[in-house]
Amino acid sequence: MIVLFGSLKTRSEIFTNPLSFPTEPTAQNFPEAYESMNFTQSFINSVLVMVVSVFLIVIFSAMAAYALARMKSKWSTVIYFLCAVLMLVPFQSIMIPLVSLFGRVNLLNRTGLIFMNLGFQSCMSIFLFYGAMKSIPISLDEAAYMDGANIFQIFWRVIFPILKSTTVTVIILTGIRIWNDYLLPSLVVNQEGMYTLPLQMYYFFGEYTIQWELALAGLLLAIIPIILLYMFLQKYIIEGVTEGATK
């Protein structure tokens, strides 16, 4: 509510009464913030990075989890627990050498950002998919194999459709994190016209002054799409997290 009220105030009113209702609401902040942020291009960049990253994360994580869940060896267990442990590694501890490495091979900006998202978000996704797949009886695989299906057909036509709620949960959790991320894009994106919305939000925070009324309006514009996505898919979240974490 503070963001909504602040986006309808003038700068002087924000400093005078930051927590109160706007006395004279104005919508002028929104077109100014839209133009200052180059919102259309930034929105396209954010959507492109999020959609491609989430698509790759879902595909590779689901396939990796299927292989780990169906393999009967000590290495599958080791790899699974390694994925669980890697979720605890903070990005800040490896960001400098990682960004330096990607810079040497010219994999910065959107391409590098997508690959880094794939690497950092896959462990949690594998963890959720693995738990859900352990609850699916292997007899389904065997029945499909007896009908002549190969391993890829078994996975895509039999197993993956059953994981709908887990897939939606992975989409929501990874999508929100990628959409809101500022630190990683700030290190990877260095080309004009490829900035994401969180990066463009920094435009309102100058060295000597902060345009709070435009910053709050821009923040509201930036969070509306992800809120709508969450509201549309929220019914699957509890079910998916439960399947991936407890079974």
Rank of each mutant, 00 (worst) to 15 (best):
F205N: 11
Y230A: 05
L68R: 11
A84C: 15
Q234T: 05
L98C: 06
C123E: 07
T166L: 00
I227S: 09
V52R: 10
I238H: 00
C123G: 04
L229V: 14
S165G: 06
V49P: 06
F43E: 08
A222K: 04
F127Q: 01
V168C: 01
F102T: 05
P161Y: 10
I238L: 04
V170E: 04
I14Y: 12
N109L: 02
V158G: 09
L221D: 00
M201Q: 11
A64M: 14
F5Y: 11
F5E: 05
P90W: 02
A245I: 13
M95I: 14
S42A: 15
G103T: 00
V168A: 03
L113S: 07
M116L: 15
S53T: 07
L220T: 04
F21C: 09
A84D: 11
Y80N: 06
T16E: 12
Q191K: 15
R110T: 15
E35G: 13
I224Q: 03
I59C: 04
I227N: 05
Y66Q: 03
Y195H: 11
I224S: 10
S139V: 10
W212D: 08
L140N: 00
T77K: 15
I44R: 14
D141G: 04
A245E: 04
P185T: 02
L219C: 10
S73F: 00
P90A: 02
R177W: 12
I2L: 14
R110S: 13
L140M: 08
I178C: 02
I96K: 11
G148V: 01
L128Y: 08
R11S: 14
R11N: 14
L113T: 10
G244L: 03
M133W: 10
E13Y: 00
K9R: 02
Y145I: 13
T167E: 00
M116Q: 11
A84N: 05
K134E: 11
G6T: 03
A132R: 11
I237V: 15
